[in-house]
Structures are given as structure tokens and as C-alpha cells.
Write a protein that binds this DNA or RNA. Structure first.
Lengths: 151, 151
DNA sequence: CCCTTGATTTGACTCGTTCAAAACACGGGT
DNA sequence: ACCCGTGTTTTGAACGAGTCAAATCAAGGG
């Protein structure tokens, strides 16, 4: 496993370091993790890891295309390793859980606006908002219980 | 004009106050304004207006459905008065300019994911990313000039 | 094994936004 | 027209997520 990451990092022109391997491992286990989750998780392998380092690692991974950053409105940014395919997300309004959705059309942008207003569009980002299975139960009386652990 | 806002506010069960009318006027002139733009603009009519008050007004307007909040990734939240129709947005990666896009299908959610993963979806949010007309010129050499005035 | 350069660390700091308590004023009732 | 209750505004502090900068450290090519 780590060998794979090592190869991918080097192929991307990045040095292979412990923080990077740790972050990649966490991302592998948590497909939609926020920075805090990654810091906590990566400290299992690298206890002295600082949040700033994680931000640095994530920025490096995103900039070379090994990771993708998604920013659902009103929540901290999430990172995922599934890149290259043009897929979208289902986000739970209640607990923030995220699930992947394959895009009908493979390439980005998968949709075209009816009127581009002079813009040159390179990506269509789609977010489906709703309630995940767990939050549908008792969503009526509990009004909102935002803040659960995004898995 | 103000009479219209007065009626709409009252119909929504909100009291008619100067901060609210000022914010509505700014929103009318700047269809996609962020909180800061609104504070600055509203101070033309109400010089002592504080940012916190504007946040309060915006929250009130959004909660009764008179305004809508949009949060493009990596930028402060924007507010618009165009509500009720299910429309989407074009966002310029360079200057942050936003333009409305009519949705092909009128009602929300206008799209359905291929696999809902158990989610009950109530809205499909679509953001088209690209370059606005102004930023297309010289976008090659200037790399990025983010931070312009979103109109 | 050394050296260069990129990566990590440490710490301070910014921005956008939210929270809380006190002062205020909209507008329904009389 | 006035008063009063409750919704609003105000003031001020605080928060979380993320960024910036300088110094230290280590990956890995030579």
C-alpha cells in the first residue's frame, strides 16, 4: 500500500515523507475527511503531526491532482482521493455525511448552462442536498442535530 | 419601492426597520453581494449600521425566504433576492463574479442522482466554474488576480 | 556522504462569521 | 395619541477554519 503511495507521490514530483504517507492513509480510510479528522487520524502514525503540516500536505496533494478538495456550504472543506473522474456528491443537511454520485456524463463539465453570460465554463459542480438514511429517522421532531461525524 | 419591501417584510411576519430596508435596497442594486458589500452599501442610507446588524438582517431575510444565501467554495457568502425559482450560478474562478443561470427544469431538485445511496434529496445545487468575459483577456500571463469586486 | 531544495515545524495572525447581553424601537392594543 | 411587550439593533467579545512567514529539518540526486 505504502509502496503505491510512494510511487504516486514520486511520479507527481513530490518527495515521499511520513506526513504525506500518513495523510494518504487516513484519506484512504475516510474517503471524505476534513482537515481535523485527518490530523487526528494521521497522528496514529505520526503523533507530533501539526495541523499546519496537514494543510501543507493537502495543498500539495490537491495541486498535483492526487487529491480533490470539496467545500460544501457551511462546513469545513473535505478531501477525497477519488480524482480524475467527474463525480458529484450527496450531502446530508443534518449530519454532514457525504456520499459519492457517479456523473451521468463522464467528462467535466458534465452540464452546460443554457446561457453562459460570456463565461468560459470548465467545470459543473453538482451537490445534492438532502437527508441521509440515518438522519431521516426522527428528523421531524429533532429539527436539527447538525454536527455529527462526517464519515 | 420601499413600499414594496415594507409590504413583503410585513407579509413575512417581520417588522419594517431601517436596517432591513437599507439591506434590501443594496441587494436590489447588487444582485450577488457579500456581507461586506452590503454593509458598505447600506451605510449610504444608514451610516451607523454595524456588520453584526447586517448579519442579523440577512439571517432574518433568508429564514423567511425573502433572500437566498449562496456560498461558492473559497469565497465569502453571497446573498440574492431572486428566490423561489430554482436557478443556478456561474462563478468566475479569477474575480469571483457571479451570474445567474436559469435552470432547465423549473422545480427543485432539478436533477436526480443516479444512485441516491439512501439519501432523500430535496435540492440539486449546480455551480458552473469558469472565467468571466473580462477575466478571459490576459488570463494566461496574469495567472490569478482573485479578489476583484464581485458585481 | 554531502548538498541543494523542498518539506515540516512553530507561532502568530487574518478573515468571515457567530454568540451574548444590554439598549432600543416597531406597531398592536387601549 | 400613548404605552407596553417583544422583536431588533447595538456593542463587544469570541470562535473556527484556514493562511502567512521564518527557521529548522530531511529527501534523495550527485
Amino acid at each position: 500500500m505504502e509502496t503505491t503511495w510512494t510511487h504516486r507521490l514520486r511520479k507527481a514530483g513530490l518527495r515521499v515523507t511520513r506526513p504525506r504517507l500518513s495523510v494518504l492513509d487516513v484519506l484512504d480510510a475516510h474517503p471524505h475527511a476534513d482537515a481535523d479528522t485527518i490530523v487526528t487520524g494521521a497522528r496514529a502514525q505520526h503523533p507530533t503531526l501539526s495541523p499546519q503540516t496537514v494543510y501543507g500536505v493537502l495543498e500539495a496533494l490537491v495541486s498535483v491532482g492526487l487529491a480533490r478538495r470539496i467545500e460544501p456550504a457551511g462546513a469545513p472543506a473535505l478531501f477525497e482521493l477519488r480524482v480524475g473522474d467527474n463525480h458529484h456528491h450527496l450531502v446530508c443537511r443534518s449530519c454532514g455525511a457525504v456520499a459519492d454520485v457517479d456523473c451521468a456524463v463522464g467528462a467535466a463539465p458534465c452540464l452546460s448552462p443554457s446561457d453562459t453570460a460570456g463565461f468560459v465554463v470548465d467545470e459543473a459542480e453538482v451537490v445534492f442536498w438532502g437527508l441521509c438514511r440515518r438522519c431521516q429517522v426522527g428528523a421531524a421532531d429533532e429539527s436539527d442535530t447538525v454536527g455529527g461525524t462526517p464519515a
